[in-house]
Computed example of a mutant assay.
Amino acid sequence: MAIVHSRITGTGSYLPGAPVSNSELIAAHGLDSSDDWIAERTGIRARHLAGEGVAASDLALEACKRALEAAGRPANDVDLIIVATSTPDYVFPSAAALLQAKLGVTNGGAAFDLQAVCSGFVYALTVADKFIRSGSHKCALVVGAEVFSRILDWSDRGTCVLFGDGAGAVVLEASDKPGILATAMHADGSHHGILSVPGQVCGGKAVGDPFLRMDGQAVFKFAVKVLADVAHEVLAAANMTADQLDWLIPHQANVRILQSTAKRLHVPPEKCVVTVDRHGNTSAASIPLALDEVVRSGKVGAGDTVLLEGVGGGFTWGAALLKL
């Protein structure tokens, strides 16, 4: 019996509205900060923010349309939709179910959300790969979609300047050629306190703190370590070394984290994809956004070996090694 693999056959992304510069954000919210201060510490110069009434599934819809077009697939070929998001439209139904309806998919395929914060896309890609390799599904939409602007405290200059909204998607299909070479997922809930939104909806009102809170220094130290570790893990699983990578696409949180991760892996800076300067941290959307940008630019193409990796609140972390 032939071994079933999974391969990415199309990518797509979507950023809402015009870019909002650091200076524009500072002026809009009266922040005690400056463009130079933000850029020096984070590498971020701009981000996109969704307008009122625009939900995660709306951003996901546009990204998925572009990914399906790139793959040459009609929406009804999709039998699995996984949306990685921490900012879904509703408590329920899932953003994935809403997306399925907006795409016009009527074949009864599975659709669900996955919540692993900034590691969400890697988690979702890993899960979709296992579904396809099991033989149960043949064509998946794997999406990262976020409207983090809805959970930001605009008076907290240490967090509100870091994040943006957006969506990225890939079409993942069954193939006789390996595409996803190795994956890994991890979590350690004991670190939940250094990055969280410690609130919930109960009895018709928000209970606890409904805004994102973060210990930036603790997150930095943790992220740099686990990103290097999980990269080595998936490379070892595929019997490869870092010098065989064509591209490294880490979660776009902070340019210093990206630089430190690449340095630990001995990956040259020119092989590390950076979009955080223009997108900010879009959480689960950041990796597929970056992937789509470099694919559409022609910088990354068929046959390239690419390492995707992310770390997020929970704490969660993971990586996926793939051949395009």
Rank of each mutant, 00 (worst) to 15 (best):
V274R: 09
D215W: 04
G313V: 01
A320M: 03
F220R: 00
P198C: 13
V127A: 08
P88H: 10
S155I: 08
T241S: 14
A71Q: 03
R278W: 03
H232K: 10
I81F: 06
R47C: 06
L212S: 03
T11I: 11
D246R: 04
I287G: 09
V78A: 07
T11Q: 11
E40F: 11
V54M: 07
K102P: 10
S175K: 06
D165F: 15
V273L: 00
V122W: 02
D188F: 00
L61E: 14
A116Y: 03
I26P: 08
I287W: 01
A290R: 07
R213H: 10
A140G: 09
G179F: 06
R41Y: 04
L49C: 05
Y90T: 09
P250V: 10
C160D: 10
I81R: 08
A60N: 13
D156H: 07
V127M: 10
Q244T: 13
G72K: 00
A284T: 03
S260Q: 13
A169I: 14
S86Q: 10
V234T: 12
G30K: 14
G199C: 03
A56T: 15
S196C: 06
A236W: 02
R45H: 05
A231I: 13
A56G: 07
E233H: 14
G120A: 06
H279V: 15
G109Y: 10
F163Y: 15
G204K: 12
L31A: 05
G164T: 13
A284R: 04
F131G: 10
A182L: 06
V295I: 12
V306T: 13
G179T: 07
S297R: 06
G53D: 15
L103G: 06
L308R: 01
T87A: 11
A184I: 04
V54H: 11
L248H: 01
D304A: 09
E69K: 14
I257M: 11
H279A: 07
Y90S: 02
M185D: 05
E69H: 14
G144S: 13
D36E: 15
G17Y: 08
A63P: 00
V142H: 04
S297V: 04
A111Y: 05
R296G: 04
D292H: 14
A97P: 07
G120C: 05
V142L: 12
S6F: 06
S94V: 13
G189R: 05
L103F: 13
C160F: 08
D165W: 01
Y123F: 14
A95L: 11
